[in-house]
Design a binder for these strands. Structure first.
Lengths: 209, 209, 209, 209
DNA sequence: AATGAATGAGAGTTCATTCAT
DNA sequence: CATGAATGAACTCTCATTCAT
C-alpha cells in the first residue's frame, strides 16, 4: 500500500464565501448519505455529487479526490470527538480517577451512539483509507487530555500516569467498538456500560487508587 | 449495501482430490500474500491467480467470486480461533472465573498476535465484506463456549452467566483489537495484557466471585 | 479534423485602451511561459489565466477559445519573422543571388535561434492547431518577398524565379527546422550553417548564376 | 513535461499466438485510420478500439496506454524507414558520394511519399509524444549507415565524414519535411527533388569530391 | 468590465467475470 | 479440467466554457 501524501486528502479550498460553504456542507452530508445507504464499496464520486445536487466538477473543486471525501468525514467526526473528550477532561479536573474514568466512558459512548449508523460506517471506512496519520494524531491529542486528567486526579498516586491511561483508554475505546459490532439491544448496552464502569472502578481500587 | 446470498461466498467445491487441495491452498496463501503486500484495494483476482500460479479460470472453479476469497480467509481464521478458544474453555473447566478469564485473554491475544499483519489485514478486510453473518456465527459459537466455561467455574454464583460473559468477552476482544490499532511496542503490550487481566480479576472479586 | 472558421481563432477585440493592451500582453506572455514549462498538453486555460494574473472570464473576453491563444502566438511570431525576412529582402535588392541566399539563411536562422525553446514549442504547437491557413498565408507573404529579391538580383537570369525560390526556401527552411530537431552543439550548428550557405552558392554557380 | 519511462510506451505483450497477432494488427491499422480521419486530438482509446473491432479491454492488454498506440506506429514507421535507408546504403557501397546522396534523396523521398497522409499524421503526432528517445535512436542508426556509405564512397577524401554526413542528411531530411508541409503539386515536387539532387552534386563538386 | 464557481460531456483506464479453445 | 484472451460496464477525474454576481 503506497502511502499518499497527506496533502492529497485535504480539501482543496477552504470555502469562505457563503455559497461555497453551502456546497461543501451539501457534499459532506451527501457523502454520509451514500455511505449509509450504499456502503463504502458503493460510494462513487458521481453518486455523491448527484446526492449533493452539484456537478462532479464542482465537487472536485473542493475535494481533490474520492478518498478526501471520507477522509474529511473522519476528520470532522474525530475532531468533534476529541473536543468532547477534552471538555470532559477539563470538567473532571480534581475529581477521583474512578469518577474520571466513568465520565470518559459516558462521553465516549454518547458520542459514538449519537449517530450509530454513521459511527459504524466510519469505523468501516477507516479500513480502506490512509487514515493512520489522522488516527494517530487523534489518539495523541486525546491521550494528552486524558493523561492530564488522570494525573491531576485527587487520588492519583500511580508512578506512571501513561500506563494507567493506556490501559483505561484501550479498554474503554475497544469495548465501545466491540459493543458496536455486536448488534446489541438497549438493555444489554446499558448492562455493558455499567459493567465497564464497574470494572474500571474495581481495578483502580485494587491498585490503590 | 445489498445483502448477498451467503452461498455466493462459499467455495464452489470441496476439494476432495489431492491436486485440488493443493490448488486451493495455493490460492489461500496467495490471497494472504497479496492482501499483505498490496492491501485490500490492491487485491485483484488476476493478481491472486498469478501469485498462486494458476489461471483465473481455475481460480473461479474453486471460488465463485472475488469476495469469496477473502471470505474464505476470514472463515478459516475464525474457525481456528474458535477452536482455540473452545480448547481453552474445555481445559479451564472447574477453575475459578478469574483464572478462566485470564486464560481467555492469553489465548485470544496469542491467536491474534501470531501473524499480526494478517490479523490487521483481516480486521480491515471485514469492513468491505458481507461478513456480518459469519461474524455472528463465530460470536455465537465462541460465546457458547465461554459462557459454559464461566457457568461451570468453581466459584460461579452470578445469577446471569450471559451478562458476565458479555462483559468480559466484549472487554477482552475489544481491548485486543484496540491494542492492535495503536502501534505499540513489546513492553507496552505486556503491560496492557497484564493490566487487562488485573482488571478482570478486580472486577470479579468486587462482584463477589 | 473539422475545419474551424478562421474567425474563431482571432482575438476577440483589438485592444485599443491601454489597460486592455497590458492584459492581452500578459496573457500572451503567460501562454509562452506555460507552453515552455508544461508543454502543449499541459496548457490549460485556467493555467494561463492564473499565470497572467487575470481571471478566466477576462481571458475569454480577449481570446474566444483555447486554440486562439496558441494561434495568436504563432501569428505574432510568424509576422515578426515575415517582417524580418522582408527587411532582409529589401536590403539585398540588387545584390547577387548567392549573397541574397546567404543573407536569407542568416536572417531565418537568427530569428529561429533567438528564443530556441519558444521556437521548438511553436513548431510543436502547430501540429495540434488548424494553422494551415496561417502558415499558407505566411508562406505566400514570405515567398513573395524572396522571389522578388531573387528576381531583382544583379545576376538573375533563370527563366523561372519561382522555381529557384521554391528550391532555395524549401532547403533553407527545412534545414533549419531539422537542425533544431537534432540536439546540436554550437560547433556543429556553425558548420551546418556555413555548409548550407556553401551548398546554395555551389548550386547557383552550377546552374549559371 | 515529465519524462515518462520508456517502458510505459512499449506494447504489453508480444503477440505470439495468431489470434493475438490479428488483434494487434487490427489495432495498429485502426490507429492509423482514426489518426487520419480525426487527427491527433480526435484520437481516443474507445475510438480506436471500436474501429479495430475489439473492446477497450482487449486493446489495453496489448497497449498499456493511449500514447503507446502512436508510439508504436512511429516505431514501426521509423524502423521500416531505417531499414530502407540501410538497404540503400549497402547498395551504394563504392559509388561516388554524389550518387550516394542522390540515392538517399530518392529512398527517403519515396518512403515518405508512399502514404503521404500517414507521413503527415506521424510528423504531427510526434509533437505530442515523448518520442525524443525514439527519434534519437532512429537518427543514430540512420546516421551510422549513411556516414558509412559516404566514408566508403569511391571519391571520398573529406577529412571529416561526420560533417559531410550531417550537412547532407540535415538538408535532405529537412527539405523533404518542408516540401510536405507546403501543399505541392506533382510538378513542383519533381522539380524540387531534382533541384535538391543538383544542389548536393554541386556542393560536393565544389568541395572537391 | 471582471470574476471565478459551476458545469458536465467525455476522456483514459481497470478489473471481475466469462467461455471458446 | 485448465487456460487466458476477450469483454465492457463502471469508475475517477479533467478542463474548456459559461454566466450570475
Amino acid at each position: 500500500m503506497p502511502t499518499q501524501p497527506l496533502t492529497a486528502l485535504k480539501p482543496r479550498k477552504t470555502p469562505s464565501q457563503s455559497r461555497s460553504r453551502v456546497t461543501v456542507d451539501a457534499i459532506y452530508e451527501a457523502t454520509i448519505q451514500v455511505l449509509l445507504s450504499r456502503g463504502m464499496a458503493g460510494l462513487t464520486t458521481t453518486g455523491v455529487a448527484e446526492r449533493a445536487g452539484v456537478s462532479v466538477g464542482t465537487m472536485y473543486q473542493y475535494f481533490p479526490n474520492k478518498q478526501s471525501l471520507v477522509y474529511a468525514l473522519n476528520e470532522r467526526f474525530l475532531t468533534t470527538l476529541a473536543e468532547r473528550v477534552e471538555a470532559t477532561c477539563a470538567q473532571m479536573q480534581g475529581r477521583s480517577i474512578a469518577e474520571a474514568a466513568e465520565a470518559l466512558v459516558d462521553t465516549y459512548w454518547a458520542a459514538k451512539t449519537e449517530r450509530p449508523e454513521l459511527t459504524r460506517a466510519l469505523y468501516r471506512s477507516v479500513a480502506e483509507l490512509e487514515t493512520d496519520a489522522l488516527l494517530r494524531a487523534f489518539a495523541a491529542r486525546v491521550d494528552k487530555a486524558t493523561t492530564d486528567m488522570f494525573c491531576r486526579a485527587s487520588d492519583f498516586r500511580s508512578p506512571d500516569a501513561g500506563e494507567v491511561n493506556l490501559l483505561l483508554t484501550t479498554v474503554i475505546y475497544g469495548s465501545v467498538r466491540n459493543a458496536f459490532e455486536r448488534g446489541l439491544g438497549q438493555e444489554e448496552i446499558a448492562g455493558l456500560k455499567s459493567g465497564l464502569k464497574a470494572m474500571c472502578r474495581a481495578y483502580l481500587e485494587a491498585v490503590g487508587n
